[in-house]
C-alpha cells in the first residue's frame, strides 16, 4: 500500500473530530471520501497535510511515518494539498503562485515527467493568459486551477483535494476530472473529498464513506453505484 492511515484520531482545541479513521490507497489509485457535512472530512484532510496535529494513530506514506510531522515536511515527502476554499494568496499573482510552489519542488520520480510552469500552462491554458493577475481577481474556476497547479508543482506522489468542484461550472469540473485521471496514469495517487458524486465517480475506483469521524463503509465505486439504497442511507442522496 502506498498510503495507509490507521486509527487516526484528531480534532481542534480539545474536541475530537476524527475518532479512528482507517483507509489505504495504492500507488496511482484514487479514493473518493464521501459523507454528509460535519462528519470530519475536512479535518481528515487537514490532519493528513499536517495542518492539524493528530492525537493518535499513524499515517504511513511510501513507507514514511507522517503523523506528527510538520506540514512543510509532509509536503516535501510528496503530499500535495488542494484545500477547501482554494486558499490562494490574495496578494500574489498567478505567476508568483506557480513560481513559489516550484521553489521547494521535489526531484521527480524517475518514471514521471516533472511539473514545470510550462506543463501547467499546457494543462490549464487559461492560466497562461491570467499569469499577471492577482489571486483575488480570478474566477472561481481559475482559482481552482491555480490551487491544483500549486499542489502539482511540488511534484507530489499523492494529491489530496478537498471539494475541488465546489461552486464551479460543470465544464470546469469536467476539466479537473480529466487532469486528475491523467495524474493517475502517471502513478500519482489521488484522495478526493467530494460532495459532487459525478466527479468522484469519474475519477475514483474506490469509495470510502465517513460518518461521525470514522470511515463506516468502503467499496469499489462500481459497487457503490449499483447500490443506491446504501448510498441514500449513508449520504442522504439518491
Amino acid at each position: 500500500m502506498f498510503l495507509e492511515v490507521e486509527n487516526l484520531t484528531s480534532g481542534y482545541g480539545g474536541s475530537t473530530v476524527l475518532t479512528g479513521v482507517n483507509l489505504s490507497l495504492d500507488k496511482g489509485a484514487a479514493l473518493a471520501v464521501l459523507g454528509r457535512n460535519g462528519v470530519g472530512k475536512s479535518t481528515l484532510v487537514m490532519t493528513l497535510a499536517g495542518l492539524v496535529r493528530p492525537l493518535s494513530g499513524s499515517i504511513r506514506c511510501d513507507g514514511t511515518e507522517l503523523a506528527g510531522k510538520r506540514p512543510d515536511q509532509i509536503a516535501r515527502s510528496g503530499v500535495g494539498l488542494v484545500p477547501q476554499g482554494r486558499r490562494l494568496w490574495k496578494t500574489l499573482s498567478v505567476q508568483e503562485h506557480l513560481e513559489l510552489s516550484a521553489l521547494r519542488r521535489r526531484p521527480s520520480s524517475s518514471s514521471r515527467p516533472r511539473w514545470t510552469l510550462d506543463r501547467v500552462f499546457t494543462a490549464f491554458p487559461r492560466l497562461a493568459e491570467r499569469r499577471r493577475h492577482l489571486g483575488a481577481q480570478l474566477s472561481g474556476g481559475e482559482q481552482q486551477m491555480v490551487a491544483i497547479a500549486r499542489a502539482l508543482l511540488t511534484n507530489p506522489d499523492l494529491v489530496i483535494l478537498d471539494e475541488p468542484s465546489d461552486g464551479l461550472a460543470p465544464a470546469v469540473v469536467d476539466r479537473i476530472g480529466e487532469v486528475l485521471r491523467e495524474l493517475r496514469v502517471e502513478g500519482v495517487a489521488v484522495l478526493l473529498i467530494e460532495q459532487d458524486l459525478h466527479l468522484a465517480f469519474a475519477v475514483c475506483d474506490d469509495v470510502a464513506v465517513m460518518a461521525k469521524g470514522q470511515v463506516v463503509h468502503s467499496c469499489a465505486t462500481a459497487d457503490f453505484r449499483r447500490d443506491p439504497e446504501t448510498a441514500h442511507r449513508l449520504l442522504g442522496v439518491a
Binding site: A49, A75, P83, T91, L100, R150
Partner: peptide, 19 residues
C-alpha cells in the same frame, strides 16, 4: 513573494514545503 504569501496565508506556504 514568500513574505507576502506568509502574510496572506502562512499555512498554505508550509503546505508547499516551505518551513
Amino acid at each position: 513573494a514568500v513574505i507576502r504569501g506568509t502574510v496572506a496565508d502562512r499555512e498554505m506556504i508550509s503546505a508547499i514545503g516551505i518551513d
